[in-house]
Each structure stands twice: as structure tokens, then as C-alpha cells.
């Protein structure tokens, strides 16, 4: 990220719409009269929406006048937060999440695509219809990777993306259509990929034992240790509490839902998984 500056091209005039004005005043009223500058961030946000997704210099001054504060104070806040755009954004403003979960699930591919389709981030595309920015977590980690696209229709999340699905979305936007928001891999919301199962009646019959982590290249042996207190962990080598004595009947263990989940699975190297204990503990155990 480079230093954020006001855009060189600025509109010659700026008029605040009535609705935005009303909304800012609503925020101002929430604070005591000598503390109305507390409404600065919501006010900047509202005026950014009103001005087409970015903050012209005149808008900063407008906020300064409305909140009775020095322009430099407004400027400080506007330059501090990256969600305030100081340069014009495209008609469709793509914010691509590049934080760890999305990155693990392939946001780099999206980045390549966006670079190819739109151009360098934080600059307008040639036709002025797009601009994009890599941002920090947008809170949709369960549907990673994702982008948020803001345009006149509002701010929409497009989730579970691949380069292809994102390209389709962009193409639709170019064509003037508003793509359907939400996950693009077929699932609904952030439900499990295999469909909603948590409240199914015949749950015990339909449960699938997970043997492949979604992102993993090869099958993962998932071990359910009998001493695992909750027996729910999908890990290669779960943490083990050797002190705990599990019920000898796997079906009666809490969390196993009356089934023997370990049936048919071979524990490959349980000893390696266990944390090293002092010899004292071992001998005690052996004594028992």
C-alpha cells in the first residue's frame, strides 16, 4: 500500500443529496452537541456512498463544516481508513479479500484474473466501469474466497469463487446484468457442501465421515481417537489427553451419537501423536 492521497482530478462542485444529508443529521443527533464529531466515520461513509463510492475533497470539507471540525481532522480519518476511497472508483467496485482463509482457498487466482480483466488495483479500468482493491477480511471466511462488488444496485458478496466464476460475474456486469449474489459453487449460504444435515431426522444414517479436507490434495486419514473427549475433530493428529478414560463401548461415548465411528479405521501411529510424558507418568500408568 502506498501513501493515500487525495485524487488529482476533483469535481468542481459537490452537492449532498437530501437523503444523505438527512442520514448524517440522524447520526449527528445521536451525540451530545459538543461531541458531534463522534459522527465522523458514519458521516464519511454516508457521504462516500452519496458521492459515488469515493470522497472528493469538497466532500471532506462538507463533513468538516457539518461536524464543526477542522478539515485536517477529517482528512486524518479519511486517509487512515482504507475503506474510504480518496480516488474515484469504477461503476463496479470490486473488493477482493486477500486475508488468510481466502488466500488459502485461492484468492491469488482471483487476483491474477482481476489484474488481467481490470488492470492494476486501485486504478480505474479503461472503460471506467471497474476498479478493484485487495482488502482485508470481509467476514465471509466460511465461503472463501470471495469478493464484494459495489455498484448502484448495492454491495453484494460473491462467494466460493473460482477464477472462472468470477470471470463470469465480471462478464455479466460488463453486459449490464446484475449477477446473483452469494456462493458460486452451488451451495446455499454457508451450509455444508453436502447440504444441510444438522437437523435431519435420519441424521445417524446419512452422516458422512469426512476423509478429505476441502482444500487438501490427497485423502486425509481422519482419526477419531477413543480418548478424544468430543470425538469431533477432523485432524490428522489430534491432541490427546492420556489421563482420560474413555467409555469402553464406543457407542456409548458422548458425541459419537450412538455409533462406533472408529469402526473400520486403523490408527496408524497413535504413539507418535501423543505428547511426550515424563517417565514417572508412564510408570504410574504401567503400574495400573
Amino acid at each position: 500500500m502506498s501513501a493515500r492521497r487525495l485524487s488529482i482530478s476533483q469535481p468542481s462542485s459537490f452537492e449532498l443529496s437530501d437523503s444523505a444529508n438527512k442520514e448524517i443529521n440522524k447520526w449527528i443527533k445521536k451525540y451530545p452537541k459538543d461531541r458531534i464529531r463522534s459522527a465522523l466515520i458514519p458521516a464519511l461513509w454516508i457521504i462516500q456512498k452519496d458521492a459515488g463510492g469515493w470522497l472528493p475533497e469538497l466532500a471532506l470539507r462538507k463533513i468538516g463544516d457539518m461536524l464543526d471540525m477542522a478539515y485536517i481532522r477529517v482528512y486524518e480519518v479519511a486517509t487512515f481508513y482504507t475503506m474510504f476511497n480518496l480516488k474515484p472508483v469504477g461503476v463496479n467496485y470490486v473488493q477482493m479479500c486477500g486475508t488468510t482463509p481466502c488466500w488459502l482457498r485461492g484468492s491469488d487466482e482471483l487476483k491474477v484474473l482481476l489484474n488481467r480483466k481490470i488492470g492494476e488495483q486501485n486504478t480505474l479500468s479503461n472503460d471506467g466501469k471497474f476498479s478493484w482493491l485487495e482488502v482485508e477480511c470481509l467476514g465471509s471466511c466460511s465461503n472463501a474466497p470471495m469478493v464484494q462488488i459495489s455498484n448502484s444496485a448495492g454491495d453484494h458478496y460473491y462467494e466460493d469463487l473460482t477464477a472462472e466464476s468470477l470471470e463470469n460475474i465480471l462478464d455479466e456486469l460488463v453486459a449490464g446484468k446484475q449477477p446473483q449474489q452469494g456462493p458460486k459453487n452451488g451451495r446455499f449460504s454457508s451450509e455444508p457442501l453436502g447440504g444441510a444435515i444438522a437437523l435431519n431426522k435420519d441424521l445417524s444414517f446419512k452422516i458422512n465421515i469426512l476423509n478429505k479436507l476441502p482444500n487438501a490434495e490427497k485423502d486425509t486419514r481422519v482419526n477419531y481417537y477413543e480418548w478424544d473427549p468430543k470425538a469431533k475433530r477432523a485432524t490428522r493428529r489430534g491432541w490427546v489427553d492420556p489421563k482420560r478414560k474413555a467409555n469402553s463401548d464406543p457407542k456409548k461415548r458422548s458425541g459419537n451419537l450412538g455409533r462406533d465411528l472408529t469402526a473400520g479405521l486403523v490408527d496408524e501411529a497413535p504413539d507418535i501423536a501423543r505428547p511426550k510424558r515424563s517417565s514417572n507418568t508412564k510408570s504410574k500408568k504401567a503400574g495400573k
Binding site: A70, R73, Y75, E76, F80
Partner: peptide, 8 residues
């Protein structure tokens, strides 16, 4: 109020 610390 004329000087400020811009950006971060």
C-alpha cells in the same frame, strides 16, 4: 487545528 498526521 492545521497540522495533522495523515495516513497510517
Amino acid at each position: 487545528e492545521e497540522i495533522g498526521l495523515a495516513s497510517r
